[in-house]
Design a protein around this nucleic acid. Structure first.
Lengths: 181, 181
DNA sequence: GGATTTTTAGGACATTTGTCCCATTTAGGA
DNA sequence: TCCTAAATGGGACAAATGTCCTAAAAATCC
C-alpha cells in the first residue's frame, strides 16, 4: 500500500552533503504529468501519491510512496517526460539531485546501481500484481485486505484517494463499505 | 501491445558463443508462476505471453513479449519466486543464461546494465499506463485502439488471449466487438 | 461565530460486465 | 473422412459499477 525502501534511505544518508533537501507541504504538487524533469527526488520522510490523469479528467493513483522511494527515476533513465504527477499527502522532506548526478551515481556506485535495479524490479512486480488483482477480482473481494492494510498505517486517506487507488468511483466505494459488513 | 527491445537483441548477438539457445514450441510453458528460477531468458525470435493466474482461476495477461525482451530478470534481481507464467504464443527461440551469469553481466558490462535499467523503467511505465487506462476508461473506448494495433501486427490472437489481456470475459469482448460497429 | 468550501453519505436509475448455457463453426488427430 | 476437442457467437438474467443529484457533516477561512 505505502511503499518504502529503507536500503536506499540508508544509502542516501551516507551521501548527505552531496545532496540538497527540500520541504514540501501537504497538497503541493512536486511533479506535473507531461512536463520535463531535471531532477530526481528521494523521499526522506512523509508520504506522496503518484497518479496518472487521463484525458477524461479521471485520476488513477499508482502508488503511495514513503521513505526511501524515488521519484523521477523512470524519466531520468528514459530521458522522457513524466508519465504521472506526484503530490504530497503528508508533509515531505525530499533529497534532490540532478538527473546527471543520478545517472552518474548509477554508473559509478555499484551499491546504488543494484539498489535502483531492485527498486525498479519491485515496482514492476507490485504494479503487475496490483493490476491483475483489480482486473480479476470484484472490489468486494479486495476491499477487506485494503482496509486491513489501512488499519496498520496510522494515516487516514480521503475517500477520494482510496477510490482513485482502487480505480472506482467514490459512490461505489461508499456502497462497498456499507453492504458487506 | 507486443513489446520489443532491439537494443538488447543486438547486444545479445555480440554475446553469442557465451550463451545457449533453445527452441520452444507453441503453447509450451517456459516459466511457471510460483516456482524458483535458475535462468534468465531473452527472446531471440517469436512471441510469448506473460500472465498472472489468480486464486479464482482467472488469468490476466500482463504483456506480450517479442524480440529482445527478457524473462525472469525480475526474479533474478530480487531473488524471489516467479510472479507470473510465460507461455509461447508462436514458436520461440530464446537465449538462456544462468542467474549468476545475468547478475555478472549487470555488474561488469555497463552497456548491458544500462539497457536493462531502461528496459525495467519502460516496463514500469507501460504497465502503469496500461492499468490506468483499464481502470479509467470503458472498454468500448479502449477496444478501437487495441484493434488498430492488432491490425498492425500480422499475428492473430485468440479471443481468449485478447480478453485476458484487457481483463474482461470473452463474452463481454464479443459483445463489444458487435455493438459499436 | 458565521460563511464557505470540502468531504462524506446515499437514493434512483442507466450502463457495463459477468455468469451460465447452448449451438455453431473450426481445427486437428486417428 | 469421420470424430473429437477447441474456439466462437450470442441469449437471458444477475451483479457490479457509474452517473447525476441532493443533503448533511466536517473542516477552513475571515
Amino acid at each position: 500500500m505505502i511503499r518504502k525502501n529503507l536500503q536506499l534511505l540508508q544509502l542516501m544518508e551516507t551521501l548527505e552533503g552531496k545532496t540538497i533537501q527540500r520541504n514540501i507541504s501537504v497538497g503541493q504538487r512536486l511533479i506535473h504529468q507531461g512536463e520535463s524533469l531535471t531532477n530526481v527526488y528521494i523521499i526522506r520522510s512523509g508520504i506522496a501519491k503518484c497518479f496518472i490523469t487521463e484525458d477524461n479528467g479521471k485520476d488513477y493513483i499508482l502508488e503511495f510512496l514513503g521513505e526511501g522511494e524515488v521519484l523521477g527515476e523512470i524519466e531520468a533513465i528514459r530521458k522522457q517526460q513524466t508519465l504521472c504527477s506526484v503530490e504530497a499527502v503528508t508533509p515531505l522532506v525530499v533529497y534532490i539531485m540532478s538527473n546527471a548526478q543520478f545517472l552518474d551515481l548509477l554508473r559509478t556506485m555499484p551499491d546504488f546501481n543494484i539498489v535502483i535495479l531492485e527498486l525498479l524490479a519491485t515496482r514492476v512486480a507490485n504494479s503487475s500484481i496490483k493490476s491483475a488483482r483489480q482486473q480479476l477480482y470484484t472490489l468486494s473481494e479486495i476491499l477487506p485486505q485494503l482496509l486491513t492494510m489501512l488499519d496498520a498505517q496510522k494515516i487516514t486517506f480521503t475517500k477520494q484517494d482510496l477510490a482513485e487507488y482502487v480505480g472506482i468511483s467514490v459512490r461505489s466505494l461508499n456502497r462497498l463499505l456499507k453492504e458487506p459488513g
